[in-house]
């Protein structure tokens, strides 16, 4: 028997025994604890099962290749299910079980329909396994991707949260950077800094990297680009607190460092004050009323 006629055999079985397969599938799902966590309501699960079965029986009439266009609508629905599972906090295996647990009911339906023909049943079981495996793996892939998206989004949020631009004086900003700087975070940080320069009309920005243990080449480049961008806008940057190892990376870059650099944030601040025409003096030096 060819794959083609297998496909039509499945299509017939699905249309004739649809309701039984559906109830067997949802029973399996419930017995494996799909609803146990309370994150998914029974009605929702039923709808998902019904939709998937309907689309499967439409798709299967056209063949058994899960990657073919007639499986498009089914893949879309599985992707939706998978993404919502990811958001609801299901594990990847719980999510994949949704698809894999359809295997057994299908096996049973085929064995019942073709009880007299063991070799057809054997081939059918093999085909079903392949098809459902492919669909299951697709679900896991989507699940994985949407998890990654969530992580990326959170990283971005953390990056924004962890980079306060503080005003030290009129026209002087400081950006104390703490922790590892990857290039993504550096980009967010730098955009924030440049925006603050405009918002506060700051002529000088101090980028303090005392709290940064190491920078990679890309990050160092971002830092330098920020200094260039700030200059284009009409502001000067001072970098303070460069560690020896970072200094090496920067020199290794071979970039002409047209950056003013100071050992500590305090030194940088003193220089910045001088630039804006201020100076810090000891109280004693001034004429103070006695007492």
């Amino acid at each position: 028997m060819t794959t083609r006629s297998h496909a039509s055999l499945f299509a017939t079985i699905l249309s004739e025994h649809g309701p039984q397969i559906l109830s067997a599938w949802s029973d399996r799902l419930k017995s494996t604890g799909a609803l146990a966590s309370g994150r998914l309501r029974e009605a929702e699960l039923q709808t998902q099962c019904r939709t998937v079965l309907e689309l499967l029986s439409t798709a299967i009439a056209g063949g058994l290749d899960a990657a073919s266009p007639n499986y498009g609508p089914l893949r879309d629905v599985l992707a939706d299910v998978s993404r919502s599972r990811a958001v609801q906090g299901f594990t990847p295996s719980e999510t994949a079980t949704f698809v894999f647990s359809l295997k057994q009911p299908l096996f049973e339906a085929v064995s019942a329909a073709e009880a007299g023909d063991p070799s057809t049943v054997a081939r059918a079981v093999q085909d079903i396994t392949q098809l459902i495996d492919a669909l299951g793996l697709y679900t896991i892939e989507v699940f994985q991707k949407s998890r990654e998206e969530t992580i990326i989004r959170q990283q971005r949020e953390i990056a924004e949260l962890s980079t306060p631009v503080v005003k030290l004086w009129d026209g002087i900003l400081a950006l104390p950077l703490i922790g590892t700087l990857d290039s993504q975070r550096t980009q967010v940080v730098m955009e924030n800094l440049l925006e603050s320069i405009v918002a506060q009309t700051a002529e000088i920005a101090i980028i303090d990297i005392t709290g940064v243990p190491t920078v990679d080449t890309l990050t160092a480049q971002h830092l330098l680009k920020t200094v260039s961008a700030a200059r284009l806008m009409g502001a000067d940057c001072i970098i303070s607190g460069i560690r020896p190892q970072i200094a090496q990376t920067m020199v290794h870059l071979g970039v002409e460092l047209n950056v003013v650099s100071k050992a500590t944030l305090a030194d940088a601040f003193a220089l910045a004050l001088k630039r804006v025409g201020r100076t810090v003096v000891a109280v004693k030096a001034r004429e103070l009323p006695a007492g």
Partner: peptide, 13 residues
Amino acid sequence: VVGMRPAVAITLV
């Protein structure tokens, strides 16, 4: 040259 916007400056660099 005055008033260059941040996004413009980043892009130019």
